[in-house]
């Protein structure tokens, strides 16, 4: 008996060990490409390392860089712009994306064509989308204003009016990425057993009731993934702001990543400070996503 038990535990142990061994290659890669850079970045953020003053001049300042962020008006301005942009885009993309998914789920013919049209922008890189829209929205010679003029409307200063620019960026983003949410939600709809819906129909539930009480509970986990993934992406916005408005006018559309980049390799070469901002910003992104997940879960628990 005893020997048998020993053999069993021995095999289990061996399997466990083998399991750990299989993990080694990916752990090594993770350590080299993720863990080391993160630690290096965290350490560097404690230094005043300004390449303009000399790449070999690295001065330890402790939390000095982090304290500086709190009085940096431009950092908070960029963060404010980023949050406004992300929240507006997320709402618009989610509502539009969900509607498109419902429609695509319903239609019987031509679904492939509509799906292709919706997915097409996803295949374009952010920089290409941004440059394309910058040309189309060019206030003087862009096609959008030419269309407005041709139907007798006044041209709009899409890129130079401080009150409009954020909406301009939202417009570009929504055009570019709505298909992403559509795809996830459509997958959610299609994965739901059809008989539940049919039962609902037989029981006399109208289409709103069917959506609210049958489809939505099933879709919630899909919505959670879609919203969290999109929020992370939206908060990290860079190319669209950088190429469409360059953050202007007067920083009305400057976003966090852009400001961090300008302070670092993209301009001032103040490496320590820009890394400190990047770290603080990552913490902020994680916190926001946690809040979103919480909100969706609370919404679910209440039912």
């Amino acid at each position: 008996m005893k020997t048998e038990e020993n053999t069993v535990s021995h095999t289990v142990n061996r399997r466990k060990r083998l399991g750990y061994m299989y993990m080694i290659p990916s752990l090594v890669i993770l350590a080299v490409f993720v863990i080391y850079p993160v630690i290096y970045g965290a350490v560097t953020s404690l230094y005043d390392w300004d390449w303009v003053a000399g790449i070999d001049k690295k001065l330890f300042v402790g939390l000095g860089n982090y304290l500086q962020i709190f009085s940096d008006r431009l950092f908070w301005n960029a963060l404010k712009n980023t949050v406004i942009f992300a929240v507006l885009s997320l709402l618009a993309e989610f509502v539009l994306g969900l509607c498109c998914a419902m429609l695509l789920y319903k239609i019987k013919k031509g679904g492939v064509i509509f799906r292709t049209v919706l997915i097409f922008p996803l295949t374009i890189s952010d920089m290409v989308a941004a440059i394309m829209w910058r040309m189309m929205l060019d206030p003087a010679s862009g096609v959008v204003n030419q269309m407005l003029r041709s139907i007798g409307l006044k041209p709009v200063d899409w890129l130079g009016n401080a009150n409009i620019v954020i909406f301009t960026l939202v417009l570009v983003e929504v055009w570019w990425m709505t298909g992403n949410i559509t795809l996830i939600m459509l997958a959610g709809l299609q994965s739901m057993p059809i008989d539940q819906l049919e039962c609902g129909q037989i029981d006399g539930a109208n289409s709103w009731q069917r959506f609210r009480y049958l489809q939505w509970p099933h879709l919630r986990s899909f919505a959670e993934s879609a919203l969290s993934l999109r929020m992370i992406d939206l908060l990290r916005v860079f190319a669209i702001a950088w190429a469409v408005t360059q953050g202007g006018p007067n920083r009305a559309s400057e976003v966090s990543q852009q400001y961090i980049y300008t302070n670092g390799l993209g301009g001032y070469l103040d490496i320590g400070y820009s890394i400190a901002m990047a770290i603080l910003f990552s913490v902020f992104v994680v916190a926001i996503v946690a809040v979103i997940k919480r909100i969706i879960r609370i919404g679910g628990d209440n039912e």
Partner: peptide, 12 residues
């Protein structure tokens, strides 16, 4: 400048 001049780079 023309409409949108605020956003012009030398290219525009």
């Amino acid at each position: 400048g023309p409409i949108g001049a605020t956003s012009f780079t030398w290219y525009e």
